[in-house]
Write a protein that binds this DNA or RNA. Structure first.
Lengths: 210, 210
DNA sequence: ACCCACCCGTGACAAATGTCAGCGCGACGA
DNA sequence: TCGTCGCGCTGACATTTGTCACGGGTGGGT
């Protein structure tokens, strides 16, 4: 447990989550803490920087899964513009790759949505104090599953192939030759250890490479 | 707005959601309402019936996505054992098929996670009062996208094909001939209007047929 | 008794997919 | 400068996938 601050001013918080219900609920949860103060709520990554500029929070709580700019990109944008704002990432999925990318983007912490509610406020306080907060199990896992082995193009193609589109459609969408698409897919399949595209997609998604 | 009850006893609530953080946050949010009382929280569908038996809530708030028994199955189980307990389904995805199946299972309401937080308490009150609560947009959509056109076996095969397994693997897993697997897949592809398995999977998932 | 839908299987065919070798180009570091 | 790597392209090949026609079996309705 982090020692409760005695008489400092409250920690100013910004919440970003596309699901209004979750956002509101988190707000209610954190507002119960006397030393925390939710000063802004936004529903997409694009709004984060503007909201930070306007409300000057100490800590930004960002969801990874958001429309428009995702949590990772938003992290980078915030850190670039306001280096003293700490970022704490919250997410549904404990994808190893996400942790790594979030940290590289300048996040101070990473919390999965199935950690106990009581720990969230504590994580916020730790982050505000300059500490790093990462679920230990997730941290070790993210060391094992390293950087994405996929090249930029392979990632593009694989991402475009998620919905189950045919090679011809992918080629049109990406302005590539069909042969090239198949080569990239083949490379991605090889690197992921999969037996076909669909499996490659699930493996890559599971590792946070997409 | 539903008229606030003046001097009745509070509505007893049960919360079921596998993500502890969300569960705790919802609990905090709903506990702010004077006429609501969260009397139990569980993290999986299997625990729901037992918790209902023990705590006798008026309303059960169930997430659809849960390990073990999902929210729909849990709804049916609760309604069978305790007919006067109302069920309100909460979910991330507004899959049309989910709404239909939830209602058929005996749910009284269906709320998507991106509705404003302020409306949740109201939805609970309405459900408790015996009314049905469904997002209007979702309701009309769920009328259009009707019952799943897939047969039991087709659903099995398509579900097994989600990860991207090859026909040979599916055949082994389901104890079927490879030809039969391909026939079922072909039927599913035709019925979903897809061009291949992967697309059929995404379409079926999008409609809540899996 | 009949029809019908579903299930499981076979066999054969066309199309899509995955693999491989090889080519040129540009960028980047040694 | 050279070697390496990513990128894009081609062409050829084996395998997988999707489709279709067909048959047999079961069980539920009318």
């Amino acid at each position: 447990m982090t020692p409760e601050p005695e008489e400092t001013r409250p920690i100013r918080l910004l919440l970003a989550d596309d699901q209004a219900l979750v956002r509101g609920a988190l707000s209610a949860l954190l507002s119960l803490e006397r030393d925390l103060d939710v000063v802004a709520e936004v529903s997409s990554g694009d709004q984060v920087v503007a909201a930070v500029r306007e409300h000057r929070p100490d800590v930004a709580l960002l969801d990874v899964e958001m429309p428009g700019m995702d949590g990772i990109e938003a992290t980078a944008a915030v850190r670039a513009a306001f280096p003293d704002v700490r970022v704490l990432i919250v997410t549904t999925f404990g994808r190893p790759g996400f942790v790594r990318r979030a940290m590289q983007a300048g996040a101070s912490g990473f919390v999965v949505k199935d950690t106990p509610a009581a720990q969230l406020a504590d994580a916020v306080r730790r982050v505000h104090a300059g500490l790093r907060v990462v679920d230990p199990a997730l941290a070790t896992e993210s060391l094992f599953a390293g950087e994405s082995p996929l090249t930029a193009r392979e990632t593009d193609v694989l991402r475009a192939a998620r919905g189950g589109a045919a090679v011809s459609a992918l080629a049109r969408a990406l302005f590539l030759s069909e042969g090239t698409v198949r080569n990239h897919l083949s490379a991605a399949i090889g690197k992921t250890g999969a037996g076909n595209r669909a499996e490659a997609v699930t493996i890559a998604e599971g590792n946070g490479w997409l």
